[in-house]
Nucleic acid binder design. Sequence first.
DNA 1: TGACATCCCACACAAATGTGTGGTATTATT
DNA 2: AATAATACCACACATTTGTGTGGGATGTCA
Lengths: 195, 195
Amino acid sequence: MELTNKQQEVLMYIRKMIRDGLPPTIREIASEFGFSSTGTVRDYLTALCKKGYILLEEKKSRAIELTEKAMLTIPILGCVPAGVPVLAIENVEDYFNVDKLFAQKDELFFLRVEGDSMIDAGIMPDDLVLVKKQPCAQDRDIVVCRVDGEVTVKILRSRENKFFLEPANKNYSIISLNERSQIIGKVITAIRKYV
Amino acid sequence: MELTNKQQEVLMYIRKMIRDGLPPTIREIASEFGFSSTGTVRDYLTALCKKGYILLEEKKSRAIELTEKAMLTIPILGCVPAGVPVLAIENVEDYFNVDKLFAQKDELFFLRVEGDSMIDAGIMPDDLVLVKKQPCAQDRDIVVCRVDGEVTVKILRSRENKFFLEPANKNYSIISLNERSQIIGKVITAIRKYV
DNA sequence: TGACATCCCACACAAATGTGTGGTATTATT
DNA sequence: AATAATACCACACATTTGTGTGGGATGTCA
């Protein structure tokens, strides 16, 4: 079911308020759009609810929850045709769920990457890699490993029950894993911040 | 100023509620901890406020905001010497403030990168770039631009008052910005998720 | 000893807030 | 022509909610 223009405006406002920290009250929505009646807002909320964009909890103030469809996340856009407002809801390909990515059930840490040994895999010096602590990994996983006292980020390869660390840079050579080597964790995300 | 154990528990609960979508009301906090008086909760809130962990807005329901101090952070490690536990506090170089990165008030969106024209800058196909919407940018900024109906990610270059879009891949050529071109925003972060 | 913070309580009050019932007008669909 | 959805309005009511005022017990620090 499609949203009308007005309904989309109301949804956008609710999303903005939620991202700023607090879902709005019914009267705050009314005031934003110049409605003089709370009933008007309720019409919008029930419409958005029926169309599956929000969830409402009864008798609780500000209890407006965005569904997956319009979630409290940052929109991911695919290609955007010319002349269309960039942030229109129709362009949204998916939503980036921050909480899911950074849910702290596992032991996570960031490691700042030194050197260019993973540059062909798009991991540059000074990038941050989000590492999930685990003692083992699978073939082709990007892992953080301690070898002879040094910590490196490499691609884990297994051939004939032997493990190797493969760099993503032709100027570096493959390292064999020995008994003193230890897998610290697996890289699950790479992040680079531009100033 | 340090938090007491009880104050920490209350702060944790508030953080959990905020991440779940709604900051709690005073009476919800009271009920969670078995307090029979709202005054008790107010004592905690004013204490947390005075110690700089939360901000309170008067006369608004659920208006509890976390300060930077109280936000979720993941440790960033630099190089880790041999024999030392990886997550020891001494190794922490900085903290990555998740809430801060994604709680910006500016208009942000992610764009999924198509093609390999930025591969030498470490931006690979299917990476997500976090874009801050803005109509102009500076020399060497990585920008999202609309040129002749297509949206591309490129490096913005300015020479002698003319603007160009420079790819980070020798197989592509430089594009001149014309009147029908439009800068949509500036790339502030690149993210790649590994499965 | 006094001052202060912490950690609890009771109770009252006004404002904020969600809800309920009723209405009108327009437009699109059947 | 009838039905439904949309887009507004007014007003009343009960509950939720923040706030205010008062209190007590304990511990710490100067």
